[in-house]
Simulated scan of single mutants.
Amino acid sequence: MRELKRIKPYLPWLLMILAVDGFCIFLLWMADIEALIALIGLIVLATLVFFIAICLLLMRKEKQKEKVLLRYLDDPSSAENFDSLYDLYGAEKEEILKQLFNSFQQKNDLIQQSMRERQDYVDYVETWAHEIKLPLSLLTMILDNDDGTIPPELFFKLDYIRNETQRYVSQILFYHRIKSKKKDYLFQDISLLGCVEEVLADYGPSLREKGFQLSYDPVALDVRVFTDPRALEFILRQLVSNSIKYAGTSPILSFLATREVRGRENGVLLRISDNGQGVKECDLPYLFERGFSGDSGELRKKSTGMGLYLAKQLADDIHIQLEVDSKWEEGFTASLFING
């Protein structure tokens, strides 16, 4: 069907050839009907062969034009591709071809310039994200070596600023990593307990200030999983940070790990639950969408909507199955199935 569409522009001329052929047969019939009867088989056969040959030649020519045009569209800056296009379409299309060439050249230049500007911006943001780590490290050193001289209220505020800044910096770096064609994940056999406790230690002051009760069994969490530790910690930080941000009265944060088989994969299912604000059922299907803040309370409306989006994107990238469930004003649960 596609081949036949190529000869559609020539259809009127082909029909004209058939009409002329039919008119010649009519004249022969008028002149000598016996000769027509004797030659009709040969005439019909010759007509069909001639008609099919013309159709095949036209289809071949159109197919060649299509290939040359596609090759030119793939690389409009190539002089060889333009020359091939010019040879095929002939001098009568010279002005149109020149306009086409100039138009593509301008578009290509704009694309190249846009790509350079985008790369410069990415390089700047990435450099900034690495440079900001120096003052963050200094703030961490001050807080870790505090001997009680910093008032508790100020200590909590500084720790909160450090954790939130570090979280946003990590979002920038992992966003760049997710969108990059080159992946540099380092998969290792790690302790899930060590990963969880590392995150809880970083958020320790914020958890204590909010009055969180932590609930987990160190023995049950002390299982081995095979994943990228930095990526897993990033995902856990997003989930713990959300639990702190949307905590209710008498907040509880629990971690439960169980061995599970899904299809052909053996792994560990880690459930992270809190009894905080939760999410409305209507918002649940959209939680992993970029920039989605939803209608579940004023705090969520003010959020960037990037935390869970990046957590989901990163989880998919390192083959962790991340799912969420929640009931409004009853709590939030995130489940991570990790190969182990």
Rank of each mutant, 00 (worst) to 15 (best):
P76T: 07
R116T: 09
R2Y: 11
V122W: 00
P251V: 14
I43H: 02
K157V: 01
K210M: 15
T227G: 00
E330W: 11
Q213D: 03
D146S: 05
V225A: 02
N145F: 01
D325K: 13
L139F: 06
Q238D: 08
G248A: 05
Y86V: 10
E126G: 00
E289G: 01
D83W: 09
L336R: 08
R6Q: 06
E126K: 00
D283P: 02
F187C: 01
K157Q: 13
E260S: 08
V219I: 10
I132P: 00
Y121S: 03
P135M: 05
N275Q: 06
L70V: 05
R290H: 10
E80P: 03
I150L: 09
E3C: 03
I17F: 09
K5N: 04
E209Q: 14
Q106P: 00
K67S: 10
Y168G: 01
Y175W: 11
T140F: 10
S250N: 14
L270Q: 00
T140Y: 12
E198D: 07
T304L: 14
I272K: 11
Y185W: 14
L57T: 05
L158K: 07
A129Y: 02
E197C: 10
M16Y: 14
G340D: 14
G22W: 15
P151H: 07
E66H: 12
S273Y: 05
L42I: 11
Y124L: 13
L97V: 05
R71F: 14
L39A: 12
K8I: 07
N163C: 09
I235V: 15
M30S: 03
H319Y: 13
R162H: 04
L85D: 03
E95F: 13
L200M: 10
E62R: 15
I17A: 02
Y89L: 13
L158W: 10
V49F: 12
Y185T: 03
W29R: 13
D21W: 13
D21L: 13
E330Q: 15
D228H: 02
I338G: 00
N145D: 02
L138T: 09
V196R: 05
I7P: 01
A334R: 02
E66V: 01
V196E: 09
R71H: 12
D74L: 12
S273N: 09
R71K: 12
F101E: 15
L58F: 13
L56N: 05
T149Q: 07
K63L: 09
K107L: 08
S254L: 10
D295T: 11
E95P: 01
K5C: 05
V261I: 14
K67N: 05
S206A: 10
D316N: 14
I318S: 03
Q99C: 04
R259A: 01
L256I: 07
F23D: 01
I320F: 12
E265S: 09
Y160M: 06
D283C: 02
E329T: 08
E233I: 06
W13F: 14
V324M: 12
Y86A: 12
S206Q: 15
L314F: 08
C195E: 15
R264D: 04
R177T: 11
Y175V: 09
V49Y: 08
L70E: 01
Y203H: 08
Q321N: 08
Y309R: 06
L136C: 08
Y86F: 15
K183M: 04
E265V: 14
A315R: 03
I318W: 12
